[in-house]
Design a protein around this nucleic acid. Structure first.
Lengths: 127, 127
DNA sequence: CCTGAACATACCTTGACACGTATATGCTCT
DNA sequence: AGAGCATATACGTGTCAAGGTATGTTCAGG
C-alpha cells in the first residue's frame, strides 16, 4: 500500500474517516457504528495511521483515533491540477467557497453573496 | 471497479490523467510517453472512460482522449468534508484560490484584493 | 481486395489485499 | 496475581484487478 490514493480506495477506510470527522473515536465505537469486526477495524486503522491519515492516543485500554490533515492536503494538491477542467469554473469556485464558509470556525470569515442554484451536476454512473 | 477512488488508485491511470491535462492525446502518444504497452493503455482508458474521467473522439484510425470534469468534482466533494481539518484553514483557502486564479482562463474572473497579513477581503461582489 | 496501422478485446497468470478465525498483548480492577 | 475487557497481530483463504500475449476490428491507401 503505497500512495494515499490506494488508502482511500477502500470503502471501509473512507467510512472510518467519515466517522472521525465528527470527533475522535475508539476502536470499539467504530466497530459498532460501522458493524465491522474488531480485527478489520484495527487493521484499517493501522493502514490509515501508517499513511498519516489518523493518529491515536492511549486512554487506558482504549485507543482514541482522530484525523490528521497531511494526506488530505496531498490529495487536494493532486486534484488542483485538474481544477481548470471543471465545467463551470466560477460555479466550482463558489461551491468551494460556500463549503469553506460553512466549515470555517468564523474566525476570519469572508462574507459573500448568495448565488442562484442552477448547478448542473452529472452523475453518470453505470453498473 | 466501482468508485472514482478505485479508479485513481492505479498509478498508471493517474499518469494518463496527468498527460491529458496539457492536451488531448491519442492512444499511441500516451503509449510512447508513458512507455506502456498498447493494450495496457487501452484498458486503462476504457476504465477511465466508463468512470467518466475521459471521453474520446474518432480521428481516422486514431482515437483522441480528453478529460471530463465530472469525477474530479465528485472527488472534491468528498474531500470537502475534511477541509476543516487542514492545519491553517484560511491558508488552505488562500492556496486554493491562488491555484484557481492561475488556472482559470480569465474568462469570468472574480476580482479579489491583495491578501496581506490582515487577510481582509472585500464583500464578495460578482462582476 | 489486400496490407498495414491504430486501437480494442479475450484469455491467462500472478500477486495483492481484505476478511475471518484464532491468538497474543496490554491495561484495570479487585 | 488473576480475571476480563479493549486492541493488536498471525495465519489461511478467496477474490479481483493489472499485465502480457494473442487476436479481433476498423480504417486508409495502393
Amino acid at each position: 500500500m503505497e500512495s494515499v490514493f490506494e488508502i482511500i480506495a477502500e470503502p471501509n477506510r473512507r467510512a472510518i474517516l467519515g466517522l472521525l470527522v465528527s470527533s475522535e473515536q475508539s476502536v470499539g465505537e467504530i466497530e459498532r457504528q460501522l458493524r465491522m469486526t474488531q480485527p478489520t477495524v484495527s487493521k484499517h486503522l493501522r493502514v490509515l495511521r501508517d499513511a498519516g491519515f489518523v493518529e491515536s492516543t492511549v486512554d487506558a485500554q482504549r485507543r482514541l483515533y482522530r484525523l490528521k490533515p497531511g494526506p488530505f492536503q496531498e490529495l487536494d494538491d493532486w486534484l488542483a491540477r485538474f481544477r481548470r477542467f471543471w465545467s463551470a469554473h466560477v460555479d466550482a469556485l463558489e461551491r468551494h467557497l460556500d463549503r469553506m464558509d460553512q466549515s470555517t470556525p468564523t474566525k476570519t470569515k469572508i462574507s459573500r453573496i448568495r448565488r442562484g442554484s442552477n448547478r448542473e451536476r452529472d452523475k453518470g454512473k453505470k453498473k
